[in-house]
Design a protein around this nucleic acid. Structure first.
Length: 427
RNA sequence: GGAGAGGUGGCAGAGUGGCCGAAUGCACUGGUCUUGAAAACCAGCGUGGGGAAACUCACCGGGGGUUCGAAUCCCCCCCUCUCCGCCA
């Protein structure tokens, strides 16, 4: 949510930003509603003031005066109710208009849509093979690492059982990621895999409706989380933090559940696009200062890169274009890992995503900070980024480290968790 | 799941229809005193909305209701604690 004051002070900037992000908005209407809102509030305050005044006279009034005051009070009560109804109507519309607006955009983020993200840097070269590489589906089938039929039988298409060394590999990736982020000063959490509707909405997810990516639990207001960003953001809802203790760095280990409604048009073989996966997510709260949140944003990307470097997986870093940013993001960097089995002869596929949401989420979540030097409070900046999304990382790892004999080389960083340097073919 | 007790400012805790945005204590900030500190004393000390400002309004877990008037009464929901049951 953008600050109403900011919108009204900078209508042309907000409108321009909406255009860049491909969002239809109605700024003049917002300005109009805002004026209506102000005058309704002023009028309502005055009525309530009179109401209090009248009510206060009654205990002291004589028996003759009393009925007059009570009559006045009744009249005022009606007026208050009318005012409230009018205000509610205006605020509902205002809120709806305001909710459409995406966050503002980092001045350096590229313009354009999905194809216009700029490659900031590349690490490593697409892996060369002196044999015809397989994709992860084939590799995992050959090594008996996954069972899609069983997944479909139990939970439907898009679910899977990991088997054998793939299970160890999942654990190893998680272990490796949490050791890494812990070393960077992140507090570790395992989070609830379910969250209430208002927490989902606070973090910018729409739990119900035709377009939703979220599974809901029937007869409750709970939904399965799509990422630990949701519980980690919700964790500090409506709190006022001490600015001295910022930035707060949290890492959550959770399962992620996504309906992937309409997601099957795109090429998504195997475990690339699934309904459930395990992820270690970083989530940070910083002071309301763009320089500070930018700095933490860079930190998150650095950690992501170091993780993929340690896994010896070539990747590129994308600065996502304005038109391709989700609503809450001010700037977003994605790591795309080289996946030799994807597309025709390999392509880069998204493995992490790091967003600076500035105060956009915090405003809805009511997370503020306070400093002795300043009067009042400010909404903090929030950032999130993937440390490891197990299935995507697993694809990149398996496909890049496959050997001619169909076995998979385990990079050194994972060997202590897996206890082996190779997932080898069964005899 | 059953029975009971609760949810009030940063914390503790009073308040059961008007004098309550809320006593008191602790914490915190400033001041007096002191060589300095402590103690003592004095003063200040929640958040948000509207307004250029004066000022004003809202907020006592959340939402509805009763009333001229609600922290206080009624209804629904959420949460916490205690006991019992069940259970990895």
């Amino acid at each position: 949510m953008l600050d109403l004051q900011y919108i009204c002070d900078n209508p042309e900037l907000v409108e321009e930003n909406c255009k860049n992000r491909g969002v239809k908005c109605n700024i003049p209407r917002i300005l109009e509603l805002r004026t209506q809102r102000s005058s309704l509030i002023t009028a309502g305050d005055e009525i309530r003031r009179q109401q209090k005044e009248t009510a206060a006279k009654i205990p002291k009034a004589t028996a003759e005066e009393r009925p007059t005051f009570i009559e006045q009070g009744k009249q005022l009560k009606v007026e208050v109710a009318e005012n409230e109804a009018a205000l509610k109507e205006v605020e509902t519309e205002l809120h709806a208009e305001q909710s459409i607006l995406p966050n503002m955009t980092h001045p350096e983020a590229p313009l354009g849509g999905e194809e216009d993200g700029s490659v900031l840097r590349k690490w490593g070269e697409p892996t060369q093979f002196d044999f015809t590489p397989k994709d992860h589906v084939e590799l995992m089938a050959d090594l008996d690492l996954v069972d899609f039929e069983a997944g479909a039988k139990v939970a439907g298409s898009g679910f899977y059982f990991l088997k054998n060394e793939a299970v160890l590999l999942e654990m190893a990736l998680v272990q490796f990621a949490i050791e890494k982020v812990r070393g960077e000063g992140f507090t570790l959490y395992t989070t609830p895999d379910l969250a209430r509707q208002d927490v989902l909405q606070g973090t910018g997810y729409q739990p119900r409706g035709p377009e939703t990516q979220i599974y809901s639990i029937e007869n409750t207001d709970l939904s399965l989380i799509a990422t630990a960003e949701i519980p980690l953001g919700g964790m500090l809802r409506d709190q006022i933090l001490d600015e001295a203790e910022l930035p707060l760095k949290a890492a959550g280990i959770s399962h992620c559940f996504r309906t992937e409604a309409g997601g099957h048009g795109k090429a998504s073989k195997g475990i690339y696009r699934v309904h459930q996966f395990t992820k270690v997510e970083m989530f940070c709260f910083t002071a309301a200062d763009f320089a500070k949140s930018d700095e933490v944003h860079q930190l998150i990307v650095r950690i992501e890169e170091e993780i993929f470097q340690a896994l010896e997986i070539p990747y590129q870093v994308i600065d996502t274009a304005a038109g391709d940013l989700g609503g809450p993001a001010y700037r977003k960097f994605d790591l795309e890992a080289w996946m030799p089995g994807r597309g025709d002869g390999g392509t880069y596929g998204e493995v992490t995503s790091a967003s600076n949401c500035t105060d956009f989420q915090a405003r809805r979540l009511g997370i503020r900070s306070k400093s002795p030097e300043r009067k009042g409070t400010q909404f903090v900046h929030t950032l999130n980024g993937t440390a490891i999304a197990v299935t995507r990382a697993m694809i990149a790892l398996i496909e890049n480290h496959q050997q001619a004999d169909g076995s998979i080389r385990i990079p050194e960083a994972l060997q202590k968790w897996l206890g082996t340097d190779c997932i080898c073919a069964k005899k």
